[in-house]
């Protein structure tokens, strides 16, 4: 199994193919529904003016995201009172909800990948080819196990979004994933959907 470190180069991304299991090590952020909407509206489509610390957070995120990874995750975090944060449970959330935003976020920050579960659609698959980037699939519900690969919580932004929706900056070691959408237009999710549709049509005819 290959061990890949973040930031990831284009060369590495282009060498990844659907079905390959690997581990990730380095610094990444968590970001899900609220974060994607906020990034798009405030900094990409600019339909909303930055408020409060928005601009500083954006500047802090840029170097982490260049060549970096966003993890679709709403963790359970201990140490909220003492600010000695620790990830207790941290599996992936369903990624398809970020489908309207993901490709644009990837392009804007030169993101090399997102981690989530359930896969994403054609717009993100096209984004993966353009950037290039890949979709890493983590095992949904494997929260305690994955939390063990989070070795350090470096900080948190936008905690006012709530614990699950905040931007947690984390250091991970040997985070286990499988590539299910690559930078060459291949998607495991698309192929499983197609083959299951064929079986369903036969079953419905019975």
């Amino acid at each position: 199994m290959r061990a890949i470190t973040i930031p990831i180069t284009d060369e590495t991304i282009l060498s990844l193919k659907v079905g390959e299991p690997l581990t990730l090590t380095g610094v990444m952020i968590t970001g899900r529904d609220v974060v994607h909407k906020w990034l798009i509206e405030t900094f990409i489509k600019k339909t909303r003016a930055p408020q409060g610390e928005d601009q500083q957070v954006y500047e802090a995120l840029k170097p982490i995201l260049a060549g970096g990874v966003i993890y679709h995750c709403g963790p359970v975090v201990s140490g909220l009172d003492s600010k000695q944060y620790k990830f207790v449970a941290a599996g992936p959330t369903t990624s398809i909800r970020e489908e309207p935003y993901q490709a644009d976020v990837m392009k804007h920050f030169n993101l090399k990948g997102v981690i989530g579960k359930g896969g994403m659609g054609p717009k993100t698959l096209k984004g993966c080819q353009d950037v290039p980037a890949v979709y890493f699939h983590a095992i949904g519900g494997a929260a305690t196990l994955i939390a063990q690969s989070v070795t350090n919580v470096l900080g948190v932004y936008k905690l006012e979004f709530g614990v699950p929706e905040a931007i947690w900056v984390i250091e991970v070691k040997d985070f286990p994933v499988v590539v299910t959408m690559d930078a060459h237009g291949q998607s495991l999710h698309e192929s499983v959907e197609k083959s299951s549709a064929g079986v369903l049509v036969d079953l419905l005819a019975k």
């Binding site: 709403g74 963790p75 449970a89 599996g91 929260a143 305690t144 196990l145 699950p164």
Partner: peptide, 16 residues
């Protein structure tokens, strides 16, 4: 493996 570990550590099976 996650189910066993969660039981042992008394931490949530799933973060959701």
């Amino acid at each position: 493996r996650n189910v066993e570990l969660s039981r042992k550590n008394s931490t949530p099976v799933c973060q959701d």
